[in-house]
Amino acid sequence: MPDMPQKKSRVLVKLFLSTLYLSAFTFGGGYVIVTLLKNKFVDQLHWIEEDEMLDLVAIAQSSPGAIAVNGAIIVGYKLCGIPGVLVSVVGAVLPPLILLSLISVGYQAFCENVIVKALLRGMQAGVAAVITSVVMDMGAKPFNERDFLSIFIMAACFVLNYFFNVNVVLLILAAALIGIVRTKWAERGKKA
């Protein structure tokens, strides 16, 4: 069991501030917030275990809606139940809500601003490094454990998603099916 937080009100405040702050930096799609959530709640605070975090991401991914919002909801529920869900949704939605309502007034000027463009260009390289670093950490595990089925699933999903644009929900379902078959197979082997 990871060291679970102290008082509920303090956890809620921490949850709100974390989702607010992380959401403000989610450039480049939902997976960025997923990696940032992992960094915050798994590596820094140790409130969630790494395997459980991957399960939560899988659920967030296979549900409809934005991955960033779904990820915040599920981490919120895991840490604080329904109040956690409400707090983390508000935290995740507030930064884009505020920014977009400001920008929608004068967006032409914003898009063509040289400084804004340079800032985003630089940050994109940083975002790529953050995601690469997380993938290196998490992707090494099946290799270290010589878990060949996991390595196969990882490679196949990557190729199908990246090169053939296969929908993630389909890939999640296919991987789940492999898991079910493997579990049933192993149980049958034990009985015989």
């Binding site: 899988a58 991914q61 994109q124 995601i131 996991s150 699933i153 990557f158 998603n161 990246y162």
Partner: peptide, 30 residues
């Protein structure tokens, strides 16, 4: 145990999805 087995197969799929999104961002950046 059945859900455990299922989730165990999902984890590498999730890592692959994150890697795929990361590679797109990387190439677009470079």
């Amino acid at each position: 145990s059945l859900l455990q087995g299922t989730l165990q197969a999902l984890r590498p799929a999730v890592v692959a999805m994150i890697a795929s999104a990361g590679l797109s961002i990387l190439l677009s950046s470079f």
